[in-house]
Design a protein around this nucleic acid. Structure first.
Length: 455
DNA sequence: GCATGATCATGC
DNA sequence: GCATGATCATGC
């Protein structure tokens, strides 16, 4: 089939939009669907069968005359049955040598990706948890360009990446550096490296990407037609940084107890996990709003956590996270692990309280924190690998007077994180890959790490 | 007195 | 029923 040349943007979009609602099998002319091993199958089928050109990795956009790049991107439903982006949108690979000489508007990112023709498809799985390509449907087609305000943030992100290359620090690039435009690793393994112009140190191969959180806000606006509540503007974030914006919103409440904040904002102080969430939305001036409705929290993947300091400034407890999926830890390589992904991509908003001498919790400070790349590559990685090793050689469970202990990484083994129980009680168990049953365990972030952050 | 195994309470 | 934020509690 000869590729059809689209004279105008409108002509292209009109045709592209006709794909909305179609299933992949309706489009697939070359029976690509039955081929098990094509990565990026959806994009492949759309390019070849729907538009009739072969896949390429040119530096110019797919529809070069119109400067439009075609991208297929998955959406999935979260726990609340709400659509979100399945993953970040990966763009072109960064050639550190070439990119060094560019400015934003002559960069490989801008040249290729300033206009994106997005095909959103719903990602579904079969019984074996593999992608079910036959029931994959194209839900929405949209021509996307960053709105002017977000583009300011994107430009800053690009400058941050660019400056690291110029400083000979391409090997230190990390997802946490930027807000919307990321430099995500791309390659079959961590061993996929490239040269960089101002340092001898090989740098991991990375590609520009639009972060998952940003893609999710796009999905929620375009597809779910949700109205997200914004607490600031991209302009303000570009001028001040999100941490400063948040600090300015919260700082008037520093020194007040949780009860005083609730009284001032006239909200009920619940006793459970909604307690701090309710305080946060009230302090942000949008009381009653679920935090998942806040645009910036979704866009920049901000998750809050509470830290409670004792009156003397010490911390009694490590910080618990979600339960550990031992099956995943045992089988998924570190590079593909959800643990790595989680700490690379989440900005943690720590809401810091300190107990006073009456035992009341006084709001003290906030801190926006990404786990540093070197912590991820060192302590977090060794924690994961150690856990994996123990799981695959067999967990040793020993009955003691205090309960059942195990040889998974403890607080002694790693200064950053460890594994400890979190369950209804000791009998609330899960099956280990070796067939034994263990009290449910979760990931804990060490209070030594937290302590350094709140000083 | 602290590390670490255990468990409560809530909300979806 | 279960995941998760929060905290308890005791043997070493």
């Amino acid at each position: 089939m000869q590729p059809f040349v689209y004279e105008t943007e409108k002509e292209l979009i009109t045709y592209a939009k006709e794909a909305e609602g179609k299933y992949l099998f309706e489009i697939d002319k070359n029976d690509t669907l039955s081929n098990k091993n094509i990565k990026g199958k959806v994009g492949h089928i759309i390019e070849e069968s729907y538009f009739g050109y072969s896949k390429n990795s040119k530096a110019e956009a797919d529809f070069a005359d119109l400067n439009i790049e075609l991208k297929a991107t998955g959406i999935i439903k979260d726990k609340k049955q709400q659509f979100k982006a399945k993953e970040r949108l990966v763009l072109n690979i960064i050639n550190y040598e070439k990119e060094a000489a560019a400015d934003f508007f002559s960069s490989s990112y801008w040249k290729k990706n300033q206009k994106l023709l997005l095909f959103f498809y719903e990602y579904t799985q079969d019984d074996n948890k593999k992608m079910d390509a036959y029931s994959t449907q194209i839900v929405k087609v949209d021509l996307f360009q960053f709105p002017e305000e977000d583009l300011k943030v994107v430009k800053q992100d690009w400058e941050i990446i660019h400056n690291k290359i110029l400083d000979g620090e391409a090997h230190l690039l990390s997802e946490g550096d930027t807000m919307i435009l990321g430099a995500c690793t791309k390659g079959s393994s961590a061993k996929t490296v490239r040269t960089q112009p101002f340092s001898e140190i090989p740098a991991k191969q990375r590609a520009y990407s639009i972060k998952q959180g940003y893609m999710s806000t796009l999905v929620r606006k375009l597809i779910s037609e949700e109205h997200l509540i914004s607490i600031t503007s991209s302009k303000e974030i570009a001028e001040k940084s999100i941490e400063t914006v948040l600090y300015n919103k919260f700082s008037p409440y520093f020194g007040m107890s949780d009860k005083e904040i609730a009284a001032k904002e006239d909200i009920q102080l619940s006793s459970g996990k909604a307690r701090v969430a309710n305080l946060i939305s009230a302090m942000l001036g949008i009381k009653g709003t679920n935090l998942s409705q806040i645009e910036e929290f979704e866009k920049y993947n901000i998750k809050f956590k509470t830290i409670t300091m004792e009156a003397d400034g010490s911390l009694n407890e490590h910080m618990s996270f979600e339960n550990i999926n031992f099956e995943e830890y045992a089988t998924v390589p570190w590079e593909d692990s959800s643990l790595k992904e989680k700490f690379e991509t989440t900005k943690w908003l720590f809401i810091i309280f300190q107990k006073n001498d009456r035992g009341e919790k006084v709001f003290k400070n906030i801190k926006l924190w990404n786990m540093p790349e070197e912590t991820i590559e060192n302590e977090l990685k060794s924690f994961y690998l150690q856990t994996q090793k123990v799981l695959n050689t067999g967990v040793i469970l020993t009955k003691t007077a205090r309960g059942v202990k195990n040889n998974l990484p403890s607080a002694q083994d790693n200064p950053v994180c460890h594994i400890r129980p979190k369950a209804k009680n000791a009998e609330d168990k899960v099956k280990l890959p070796d067939g034994q049953w263990i009290t449910k365990q979760c990931f804990w972030l060490d209070k030594k790490v937290l302590y350094k952050l709140i000083l």
